[in-house]
Design a protein around this nucleic acid. Structure first.
Length: 614
RNA sequence: GGCUCCGUAGCUUAAUUGGAUAGAGCACCUGACUACGGAUCAGGAGGUUGCAGGUUCGAAUCCUGCCGGAGUCACCA
């Protein structure tokens, strides 16, 4: 039983014995004592005023006296304006520390027998990954690590959007203009290579469209179809989609290619497979840089027809209804949602159909209890509807569905727009932070003893830490501003700052050798800096649990920063190896080890590695 | 327009889920050990928590109404 539970039980008993009232644990407001006051935990007495019919100060006083006698580790208390601050005995903290300072898995919960699937990244195959994907990937990866630490078995998946008109555009452009080039011959990463042909297609289409606008046909259309007063450029801007679908020869060719793909034409399929393979090789490099991997990939080309059976069954059960034109719908208005289409009038699937089918397939494949979808908040509505439908279909995992929704990433200059070329490329960004870390490392003489390969690895760890921490420290649902200049910062509230605290510990431990630390048990007078860290270390496992319940890694990031900060201060204020007594030295070495373990665990949950030197 | 999310120092952001004097970082200014690694530490300045009401012993947090921003309301994905 944790000390928090003990105190709560003590309060319940205390209220009963002092005032004869029954209360429950959730009526107790309790938190860590703020730094400026004496104590470890604080119980707020105000809520009991009504029950006890006394002033909060008096209640706090009486309850404090009761708890000191009742709950063993509580040694003393003080009351300030209705707040009861409780101090635990030094021996409690010494024993706690001795128990965990060598436990490298401290903070991890035992397996809970439940399985959760986390879907993240899920890119299209016609373009390289960008900053938006990075936020998605980092959130997905850290959420999965946190769930693991909370005791779940985790299955990491992505669904790859490998079909459709977009990839056909790249294929067509390559076929027409590529002259047989390959990523190898062009000396380019495969995803960038294929993305360039997508851009080329759009460029050629634009040229074609502009030429067409001068034609007789176009002029006539403008005269007959334009709204009165509509300027010519506005008209043609709005007309672009129709042009692509009905007039463009490039558009017709791309659509023809999509039809051939759907018909299973071997040549088209071959080209499609070739180009997608190039893309995957490119993606894999980026994933490797970011240190993420997946247990299972789902390809849309294999799942896009799923879900029709489910719709058919739902129709028979009366969950769905059919309109006269044959389209199938579900009425979600009583769930505060709309009527949603689940099958087109021509019998083909929509996004929703596919997602229903894919969820069912995943359950068949893995038998998971929960599914987490990491997808940007522009799809909030879609997932509400999807989850509601799966619930009504009676899917066994329906209670465990969660949409980990996150806000868009903006630049200091505003939104990222592919048309304006302001999209931040993932690989460029990674290269930039690595370069910055390299420069900073060169200014110091801290790792020159390592081999070149080891140095390179340390530089990469620092760079990736800066990037990841910068993104993960912001709560997911918030839209965030990403300033590339700040993201490469290695000082202040950053990943490298936290790494540095860990590296300091390692440095001290190397100097200390491996002395026996039994003397720590006789260390009497804990300093405030020490108690502050002990409180944090103690709170870590509960924080991991909370992060898992809320699918939110940002709290872990902020915690790691606070703990690192506390350690840096401690390190500055108090001497470890030259401590005045052997007891103090032993205790501080234990404490340093415990802090290092928590920092390594904590950053590990964010997907950030710890260097031993930096 | 309906629904959803967001609004905290110049900028980027916390706040233990309703608790004490709203806490950090960046940028700016001033300092620190011939000592365990200065990617560090200490100090200064910077706030009407978008605005106005309400609930409460207590509100950045909950409720109502405005203001501002974003997203979404497709037989697209």
């Amino acid at each position: 039983m944790s000390i928090i539970d003990s105190i709560q039980n003590g309060v319940i008993k205390g209220i009963k014995s002092l005032y004869g009232a029954d209360i429950t644990a959730d009526q107790i407001t309790m938190n860590s004592t703020r730094k400026e006051f004496e104590g470890d935990y604080t119980v707020v007495a105000f809520p009991f005023a009504r029950i006890a019919k006394k002033k909060p100060d008096q209640i706090a006083e009486e309850l404090g006296a009761y708890l000191v006698g009742e709950v063993e580790p509580i040694e003393q208390y003080n009351v300030i304006k209705g707040f009861l601050n409780l101090s635990l005995s030094h021996s409690f903290w010494r024993e706690f520390l001795a128990g965990i300072y060598q436990d490298a898995s401290y903070g991890r919960q035992p397996a809970n027998g439940q399985k959760v699937m986390v879907e993240f990244s899920s890119p299209n195959t016609n373009k390289p990954l960008h900053l938006g994907h990075i936020r998605n990937i980092l959130l997905g990866w850290s959420a999965s690590r946190i769930l693991e630490a909370a005791g779940y078995e985790v299955v990491r998946v992505q669904i790859i959007n490998d079909r459709g008109i977009a990839i056909c555009k790249s294929m067509l452009a390559w076929q027409k203009f590529g002259k047989g080039a390959t990523p190898a011959s062009a000396g380019e990463k495969g995803d960038h290579f294929v993305g360039d042909y997508y851009v080329l297609f759009e460029k050629k289409l634009r040229e074609e469209y502009q030429g067409w606008q001068q034609s007789e046909e176009a002029r006539k259309l403008f005269e007959t179809k334009a709204d009165t007063g509509q300027a010519e450029p506005d008209f043609f801007k709005a007309f672009k989609n129709t042009y692509f679908n009905e007039y463009s020869s490039l558009g017709a060719e791309a659509k023809q290619m999509l039809l051939q793909w759907e018909a299973g034409d071997p040549a088209t399929k071959g080209l499609w497979k070739q180009m997608n393979d190039w893309v995957y090789q490119g993606f894999d490099e980026t994933y490797k840089q970011l240190g993420v991997e997946f247990d299972q990939l789902y390809f849309e080309s294999e799942t896009y027809l799923l879900g029709k059976d489910a719709v058919q069954k739902g129709l028979e059960k009366g969950l769905f209804y059919q309109k006269e034109d044959g389209s199938v719908w579900i009425d979600l208005t009583d769930a505060n949602l709309d009527q949603k289409l689940v099958l087109r009038s021509d019998g083909t699937s929509v996004y929703m159909t596919q997602d229903i089918g894919t969820a069912q397939k995943r359950y068949q494949d893995f038998g998971v209890d929960k599914m987490v979808y990491v997808v940007a908040n522009e799809q909030n509505y879609h997932f509400q509807a999807l989850f509601e439908i799966l619930k009504r279909l009676g899917e066994p995992y329906a209670h465990g569905l969660y949409h980990l929704s996150y806000g868009m990433v903006d630049l200091p200059t505003g939104k990222m727009k592919s048309r304006e070329g302001t999209v931040v490329d993932a690989d460029d960004l990674i290269a930039e932070v690595v370069e910055e870390a390299r420069k900073n490392t060169a200014d110091r003489d801290t790792i020159s003893g390592l081999s070149e390969k080891e140095q390179e690895e340390v530089i990469r760890q620092i760079a990736i830490a800066a990037l990841k921490f910068f993104i993960i420290k912001v709560q997911p649902q918030k839209r965030m501003v990403f300033d590339p200049k700040e993201s490469v910062d290695l000082q202040g509230q950053t990943g490298p700052y936290v790494q540095n605290a860990y590296v300091r510990v390692q440095s001290v431990l190397r100097k200390a050798g491996d002395p026996p630390l039994d003397a720590a048990a006789d260390y009497q007078q804990l300093e405030p800096q020490e108690k502050e860290m002990l409180n944090m270390v103690y709170a870590f496992p509960a924080l991991v649990k909370l992060a898992a319940e809320e699918y939110d890694p940002s709290g872990i990031a902020n915690f790691c920063y606070d703990l690192a900060k506390a350690y840096h201060r401690f390190y500055h204020d108090l001497s470890i190896l030259n401590a005045k007594t052997a007891e103090a030295k032993a205790f501080r070495l234990q404490l340093s080890q415990a802090v290092a373990i928590v920092l390594k665990q904590g950053l590990g949950l964010l997907g950030i590695e710890m260097p031993e030197r930096m």
